[in-house]
Computed example of a mutant assay.
Amino acid sequence: MIYLSLQIYLGALFLCYMKSQVRDIQLLQAIARRFKVLRAIKGVSQETVYEDTGIHIGKIETAKYNISISTLSKLCKYYQITIVDFFRSLENL
């Protein structure tokens, strides 16, 4: 019984460890700046981006959110830019 409880505890601990995300703050800040520029070019507010995509761009633009690749893809489509071009442009920021 103790062995099984220990196994469950270690399994839960492992899953919690595996769920922690890596945060590269410099990369997140570069992504935030790029999305601010793209939004300005499109001439839309954060609220409009949310209404159009369902994504809270404000959290991304302040580098508080560790963006997923799916979210990145959806926003790139919204701003009509490829993911490759998006990352290529980060080199200049």
Rank of each mutant, 00 (worst) to 15 (best):
K59L: 10
M1F: 09
H56S: 07
R34W: 01
L75P: 00
H56A: 05
V49S: 07
G43Y: 05
Y3S: 07
N92A: 15
S20W: 01
V44I: 13
L93N: 13
I25G: 05
F14R: 11
L72P: 01
I69V: 15
S5Y: 14
S5R: 12
S5A: 15
F14A: 07
N66L: 02
Q7V: 14
K77Y: 00
V44Q: 10
D85M: 06
I69W: 13
G43K: 00
I60S: 04
D52K: 11
S68D: 04
Y65W: 03
N66G: 02
V84Q: 10
F87T: 03
F14L: 03
E61W: 02
S45T: 11
I60T: 06
A32D: 00
I31N: 01
A30M: 08
R23L: 06
S73W: 12
V44L: 14
A30N: 10
F35Q: 01
F14S: 05
S68E: 05
K42N: 03
D52H: 06
L10K: 15
E51C: 07
A40C: 08
H56F: 08
G58H: 02
S5N: 14
Y78L: 06
D85Q: 10
F14Y: 12
R88N: 13
T53D: 01
M1W: 06
R33N: 07
Q80M: 06
H56R: 12
E51I: 07
A40V: 03
V22Y: 13
I83K: 14
I60A: 04
A40Q: 12
I31E: 00
R39Q: 03
Y65Q: 15
A40H: 11
S5M: 13
E61C: 07
F35C: 00
L28M: 08
K19A: 10
I67V: 15
I83S: 15
G43H: 06
M1S: 14
T53K: 10
Q29S: 13
E47I: 10
Y79V: 04
G11S: 06
Q46G: 05
L10E: 08
E51A: 11
L15D: 04
L27H: 00
V44K: 09
L13I: 04
E47Y: 05
K19C: 06
C76L: 08
E91F: 14
I2T: 10
S68N: 02
Y50T: 08
I2W: 03
Y78H: 13
L75A: 01
S20Q: 15
K64L: 08
I41M: 12
I69G: 09
Q26W: 10
R88D: 12
I57M: 04
K64C: 02
L6Y: 06
I31R: 05
E51L: 12
Q7C: 09
M18A: 14
